[in-house]
Computed example of a mutant assay.
Amino acid sequence: MGFWASTPDRHSVIEDVQGIVAGSMLAALGVTMLSAADLLIGGTAGLGFLLRYSMGLSFGLVFFLLNLPFYWIAYRRLGLAFTVKTFTAVAVTSLLTEILPALISFEHVNPVAAALFGGLLIGTGMLALFRHRASLGGFGILALYLQDRFGWRAGFVQLGLDLVVLALSFLVASPVVIALSVLAAATLNLTLAINHRTDRYVVR
């Protein structure tokens, strides 16, 4: 029963597995929706989109590889459990972003709707991961560390970093696409900033 046992301040193993898989599924669906509308997002996912649009590389593979350098920071600052969970979430999300386009087809996606719903899906997926002490790697690791260390809201920290990535998007995208991508990033990060607070949700 150890896998099922949970306490008011700690998730069980089964709860962690469900939370990480569900969060990864939501994030991958959000990425698929943004990709269908040729939009971008911030963070390492945004860098993955940039390389995909500019060089035709696989988003899933690039996203997985871009996150590799951040695991050392995660291990040193946030512990082995967080690092393993995050590696798993990134791997599952990367795999699903490659599989989903063959399973779900968006024949027509309004770009504004894609920005709002895609950003919300990714933000909700990341929220689930954060609450199980995991993330989608990259800037999320840094954002969580700064929140734990200094009390800065993870959503606002990541929003600032995302804006840097989106600024680079001017090299490959039109101003309209970038404006809608900023909308997606804002939706994502406001979802985190409003809903994720360590003083409200303390389960580890």
Rank of each mutant, 00 (worst) to 15 (best):
T88G: 03
A89K: 13
A89H: 09
V90F: 10
V90R: 14
V92R: 07
T93S: 04
E98L: 02
E98T: 04
I99E: 08
A102R: 15
A102K: 12
A102M: 07
A102Y: 15
L103W: 15
S105N: 15
E107D: 12
E107M: 02
H108F: 14
H108I: 07
V109E: 08
V109Q: 13
P111Q: 11
P111R: 15
V112T: 12
A114L: 03
A115C: 04
L116H: 05
G118T: 11
G118S: 05
G119F: 02
I122M: 14
G123H: 10
G123S: 06
T124W: 10
L127Q: 02
L127R: 13
A128L: 15
A128I: 03
F130C: 01
R131D: 01
H132Q: 10
A134H: 04
S135K: 06
S135A: 09
G138I: 09
F139K: 04
G140R: 11
G140K: 08
I141K: 11
L142V: 10
L142F: 12
L142Y: 09
A143G: 09
L144A: 01
L146S: 11
L146C: 05
Q147V: 03
G151V: 14
W152E: 10
R153F: 04
R153A: 10
F156C: 00
V157H: 12
V157W: 11
Q158A: 09
L159Q: 10
L159C: 03
G160K: 14
V164R: 11
V164F: 01
V165D: 02
V165N: 11
L166S: 02
A167T: 13
L168V: 03
S169P: 00
S169F: 01
F170G: 00
F170Y: 13
F170K: 02
F170M: 00
L171I: 05
V172G: 00
P175E: 00
V176C: 00
V176W: 10
A179F: 01
A179V: 04
L183I: 05
